[in-house]
Design a protein around this nucleic acid. Structure first.
Lengths: 337, 337
DNA sequence: ATTAGCACTGAGGACCATGGAGTGCCAGGA
DNA sequence: TCCTGGCACTCCATGGTCCTCAGTGCTAAT
């Protein structure tokens, strides 16, 4: 029922509408795309496409506009990811390679992605759950407190202050530090709970309370609360768009970290692109936006996600190309760190 | 030339305009404020106020609107900071006291301030330059690299990976670590350069190169590049406002960290409020916004700034009250940490 | 110095006419 | 059977006109 030509018409409608932001009519299509048929024929095809729900008219006597379903078909079957130009690749590479630490890598990545796509970019910090412990440090602070610092192999540093330990013995702290390092260094984070389980037994009774406190904070900060940090950029690009939903709703949704995390979705293979269009996003305020996201990681191990949020009326091939390219480069940079 | 009544008229104009967002006329003023005179008299006063540049008419036959100069006078002489309600204070306290580490304190503070003021909130991380070194850690990583971690007494942790050091001797690293700790622990950051200056002399010649690399990274990351981190929240509140400048310009300005840092201005005493109105902000895109900022810190030592960005047409007394209160609470929380 | 009265001004809304892009449908042709 | 030219129709967007009305400045009286 959807022959080649109808698909070509749909593709043309999507492309023109993305370019012009105006409903596209049969005559305009016949002029701008070499479809080889007359406007009348295109009109007939459009009727069929409309019956199947791929396009719609804002009102009689207006051109057609793609529906979410139309964009879906376009993304799945009618378009291909557009590779970046050589100049863009060079720009990415030189821009990202100047970063000195994880924070800066993430900050630069998100700005880069926002600039390339001219939309809102989201970058998630590398997940703790998949990395392993590089080093643990236990530092006495003033006022009978300890600072616990955990360094992971992905370059992330987590720290917590532990309070209410009572009198602290410097040697006991040093001992505990040594035991923690021996028990956890090189371990995958998921293994840490098992690895430290019987540590309190090895501590002299008078220090067990302290050891237990430290361990509980360690476990809590690393395993239970794998709070996912993420960063945004490019919200200014939203101002240019006129949303069906109010701009305020979109901005509000973007400030909710939990929404963003769900938006990026479940982890898959690195460099796999995911596209969610319009109402496919569960969130009310994001009904008229699309999200293009990808995993990044080292090797074939996914560490986290990056993504782009824009109007459903976006340049999917270009955006997908940019997201995929940036995800790959970040993976490379992280591997080199 | 500006008698009591004219000032009262100006105050009334500002208050009404902030409430209604519509030019306010002489009759409306006479009705809503007990000025004790007729609209005609108010009109005469308005002419005087307009000649002096405190208010202006969008067009003939419209009411008056305060100018930047009018807001300035209002803030300086006609209004007082409005204290928060008891309920608000309790909310602040309970909301902030639940934070477990510095990142969370900052994150919560900025959201809180955005909610209280219904505007865009900015919170700067406690400055490195005024804190002192709590601990230095030097951790060998895989691949002949070292990670340098510096912990400050304000709870901030800075880390950097150092590369290209060649073959590493574990003992030499441990020695250097010890020397670093002894040389810097407890020192004010500004003193660090002097304190480590002659360290390379004390290192055996074969390890001088490594020591020099580590030191240069230490100095660079702590002193030279006192990159000021800051966090935003509440951008969604901008969507409700209609700016003279385009919303896009405002959002763009807010994404530039350097702009924000300059916006918050030079440090003063903690709890000192600063208000910059409209064109007093140097930045083009922020010509129609005002910034209310304050220092926060421990004791009378200022650590960093917090602030709020909103339309010039904002509720100054309320905003100033919220900013001052939040600044004080953050200081208390940090002191307790 | 204040006020009532009055003529004047300009923005904004309602109303209407018009042009034009785009449609659906039909009948004729490949 | 599929395509196309022609045609009547629909409805939005644009622009002009008119009217209302809030608010003003000025003047003369208190």
């Amino acid at each position: 029922m959807l022959d080649e030509r109808k698909l070509a018409v749909l593709r043309a409608v999507v492309e023109d509408f993305v370019n012009t932001n105006e409903p596209v009519g049969s005559k305009a299509l016949a002029d701008r795309h070499r479809l080889g048929v007359s406007p009348a024929t295109i009109r007939n095809d459009m009727v069929a496409l409309e019956e199947d729900g791929y396009i719609t008219q804002p009102h009689t006597s207006a051109g057609r506009v793609p529906t979410d379903k139309g964009y879906r078909l376009f993304v799945d079957r009618l378009s291909s990811v557009k590779p970046l130009s050589a100049a863009e690749r060079r720009a990415i590479e030189s821009f990202l390679s100047g970063a000195v630490d994880l924070d800066e890598i993430v900050a630069r990545t998100v700005r880069l992605l926002a600039q390339l796509t001219r939309q809102v970019a989201i970058v998630q910090y590398p997940s703790l759950t998949r990395s392993s412990v590089q080093h643990v440090e236990l530092v006495p602070l003033a006022g009978q407190r300890l600072m616990l610092v955990v360094i992971t192999d992905t370059g992330r540093v987590e720290q917590r202050v532990i309070d209410g330990l009572g009198e602290l013995d410097a040697d006991a702290v040093a001992d505990l530090r040594g035991m923690l390092i021996r028990a956890t260094a090189g371990r995958h984070l998921a293994e840490v709970p098992g690895a430290v389980e019987d540590l309190p037994q090895q501590v002299p009774p008078e220090n067990r309370a302290m050891a237990a406190s430290v361990l509980s904070v360690l476990l809590e900060s690393l395993v239970e609360r794998h709070e996912e940090k993420l960063v945004l950029a490019g919200t200014a690009n939203l101002a240019a768009v006129d949303f069906a939903a109010s701009l305020r709703d979109v901005l509000e949704a973007l400030e909710e970290n939990m929404v963003l995390i769900r938006l990026l979705g479940e982890a898959k293979d690195p460099s796999m692109l995911t596209v969610r269009i319009g109402a496919e996003n569960f969130h009310e305020g994001l009904r008229s936006t699309s999200v293009v996201s990808a995993d990044y990681g080292v090797g074939n191990q996914s560490l986290a996600k990056i993504g782009v949020v824009g109007p459903t009326r976006m340049d999917y091939p270009g955006t997908m190309g940019a997201v995929r390219a940036v995800a790959r480069y970040v993976g490379q940079i992280l591997a080199g760190q």
